Amino acid sequence: MYITVPKGSTIIVTGANGYLGMHVADQLLASGYKVKGTVRDADKVQWTTEYFNEKYGKGSYEALSLPGSTGVIHVASDVTFGPDPNEVIPGVIDGITSLLNSAALEPSIKSFVLTSSSAAIDQGRLGQKYLVDGNLWNHEAVKAAWAPPPYTAERAIMVYFASKTQAEQKAWELVKSGECSDLRFNAVNPNFMMGRFLHPKQNKSSGGMVMGVRNNDSRAVDTFKSFGWQWMVDVVDVAKLHVIALVDPAVRRGILASDCPFKFRVKHDA
């Protein structure tokens, strides 16, 4: 198979200490690539460098910047779940805009992958048949997120969905406009991720919710109750899909990552 990014190349992974980001770095390293992980505070996540260099060899992972890299996987996003769209969405859009433009100006970078979400495409319509393609966007979430205040707590999930929708729309807009035309661009749109952790200090994100339910954490239980029917996917599979989207030129539009449906039910003792 012809690949866009040769093995041995250095790949930037943003949010490399996160739940998915660390798995993406792990899969890249296991596939023969080197990784530069970008994080907000390198001193606080020195453990990621120690973990990967011990596992894959000294110099295989470092926390540095774009020059000299061949690809970028942008995993990091705003997961504060703030209910005010003005405090969340512009920053997410600015983040992908800045990183894509910077990558386009770096001659060595050939391929760019954005971690989006299935929620950027649609929220799911139980019992309905409809076409899922590159023209489908979650306009309902965007409308709900930007509705007039008050910005109450229950609006947070729609703000998050809208941030994913509008950030991915902006990315494709930049690519199609020609501003970043020299980059191969793809998005991966995973649904609810579950699966193992690589390190005790790793950000646990959606995987931590499963642990919370098992430990009877009320916040985790309430979150799952609010989901209704959902689709899940293993976080390791999602990480592997990011590597495929980065290196395989046959992947041209993006990958929707969903495995099987689930629904949270409360079991009552007899």
Rank of each mutant, 00 (worst) to 15 (best):
P83R: 09
S31N: 12
A147C: 05
S118P: 03
G254E: 00
S206Q: 12
D78G: 08
V24C: 02
C260I: 14
G195D: 02
L198C: 09
P6C: 02
K129Q: 14
P200Y: 08
V238L: 00
E62G: 12
M209F: 11
V113I: 13
D78C: 05
H268F: 03
S111Q: 10
S116W: 04
S205R: 02
F262P: 07
G178D: 05
G21R: 05
V175L: 11
V5L: 02
W231E: 13
L100K: 09
G208H: 03
G208A: 00
D84S: 05
M194Q: 12
G8Y: 13
A144L: 11
V132H: 10
R219Q: 14
K36E: 03
E154L: 05
I244H: 01
T97L: 06
R155I: 06
G127F: 08
L131Q: 12
N186T: 12
G95C: 02
Q128P: 03
A250V: 04
P149S: 03
G254K: 07
K267T: 12
T97W: 08
F262C: 05
Q128W: 01
G134P: 10
D237S: 11
A257E: 09
A141N: 03
H74M: 11
V75I: 14
G91R: 09
D259A: 14
Q46D: 10
K170W: 09
R219H: 09
W231K: 05
F227H: 13
E168I: 10
S205P: 08
V88Y: 00
K201Q: 15
K44T: 08
D248P: 07
L28V: 11
